[in-house]
Amino acid sequence: MLDDKITSHTFWEGVWENNPVFVMLLGMCPVLAVTNSTINALAMGLATLFVLLSSSLLVSLIRNWIPKQTRIAVFIIIIATFVTVVDYVIQAISLDLYNALGAFIQLIVANCMILGRAEAYASKVPPAKALINALGMGLGFTIALLCLGSVREILGSGTLLGFDLFGENYQQWIVMILPPGGFFVLGGWLLLFEWLRERKEQQEATSE
């Protein structure tokens, strides 16, 4: 049961134990679509983090005031508002970045992780706790995007954050920046994390 106490688990849950991408497999559309370069992944991660933080805070603040029957509609309106704000702000900061991210900024609305957190968490706990949890979840999401984005950029373009790593003769592994590459790299990371988790559990079992 969710109580109001804030523990370190409130924050770390999203980063590691229940990482939205690697454990819960939520919000896969932007995860696979925009992680073909590190900078896109970072921008997408931060935009999602902002939307998650602000919508979690607001949902938590008005959680006792919204009739249960209309809560989903209200959550979606709140999320859509913040996404529109992010959309304009990114256009104001850098048109190049905005063009690089294409339609995926608007699609944050449809990111099930954000609605999921609003429904399953923020609407049941006080604002401070919701905020801390959202921060953890958003960071976990950003880190996961960066994991994918950096590997795909290094393999697919031979660069990292736009800097050439291997010189002129590097034969770019184009498939890695294409959609299939997203699945390959995601699969690789999932394998790695599951393996780490299992090894840890086995160690704990043998030490007991």
Binding site: I66, P67, T70, I77, A80, Y88, Q91, L95
Partner: peptide
Amino acid sequence: VSLTLVSVLSGMAVVMVYLYTRPII
């Protein structure tokens, strides 16, 4: 009432951000 209120407030927030960012964009 709750839905209307939330929608109106959202609309206002979007308009404000739009007016503020439009000259910059």
